[in-house]
Amino acid sequence: MNGLETRRRSTKAILGVMLAVILVLYGFPFVYLLLTSFKTPSEAIAVPPSVMPNVWTLENYVAALAKEGVVPALINSVVTAVLSTLFSLVLAVPAAYAVTRYRTPSGRVFVLAALVTRMVPTIAIGAPLVETMRAMGIGDTSFALAIAHTTISLPLSIWLMASFFEAVPDEIEEAAKMDGASRLGALWRVVLPVVSGGLAVTAIFAFLASWNEFLFALLLTSVRAQTTPIVIANFQTQFGLDWGAMTALAAVYSLPVILLTLVLQRHIVAGLTLGAVKG
């Protein structure tokens, strides 16, 4: 084995160790949350804390899921996130397509302006949104909350989709047009299937933005459309914090997102590498 090979192996080993350390640091909070959810109430608050439960119990899950409002909140979260994702995609796809294909100065300004809207603090538009939704008669509905969440996810969805469309050569569309497809037909039948990985990435991003959102959910929902982040936060009261039940519900709440990511994993990888070899 020559020196170069040895060096290469050492570098690989060091990178591997670094990767493992980063992975542990990144994943530990979630693993700890998961383990805490199986601890007894006393062990959950132990000082110093233990990582592994001494006694494994489902007590926290029973308590969390039996709490009034938890199941409707889970349904509301799904409905809101799905709706917000659809809104984001339906609006972001044509916007990003137009910007990347027509390449006009106004399009570039539009994309920049879209991103600037992300710099406005959420709380600043919270009160006007509450007013507007009430005036429209849709206060405390998942529909209203989904619209609010779309304001968060749409700008970055447009940016994401624009970068994916950029990676699709114009020639593919032109070939479709030569075969008789309209521009819309080419987008629908040719371009969108090509960027399906990008669509999956954008959809997951939009879904997560809604799934975890707290402030709009706090301001816009009460009885009918309250989502799970609010219910989870309710475990922290002025006088204490129910760690066990809170971690149990948080673990349950993270499951759909993990499953969704696993199901769409292939598309996500394809989407993330789309355009990586564009020459």
Binding site: G69, T80, G240
Partner: peptide, 24 residues
């Protein structure tokens, strides 16, 4: 869209009182 119109908590009745309280 059909579900989002009212939310899973059900529609609010006209003759009910809504009381907002802190967690706990």
């Amino acid at each position: 869209l059909a579900l989002s119109g009212c939310g899973a908590g059900g529609a609010a009745a006209e003759d009910e009182l809504t009381v907002v309280v802190e967690g706990g």
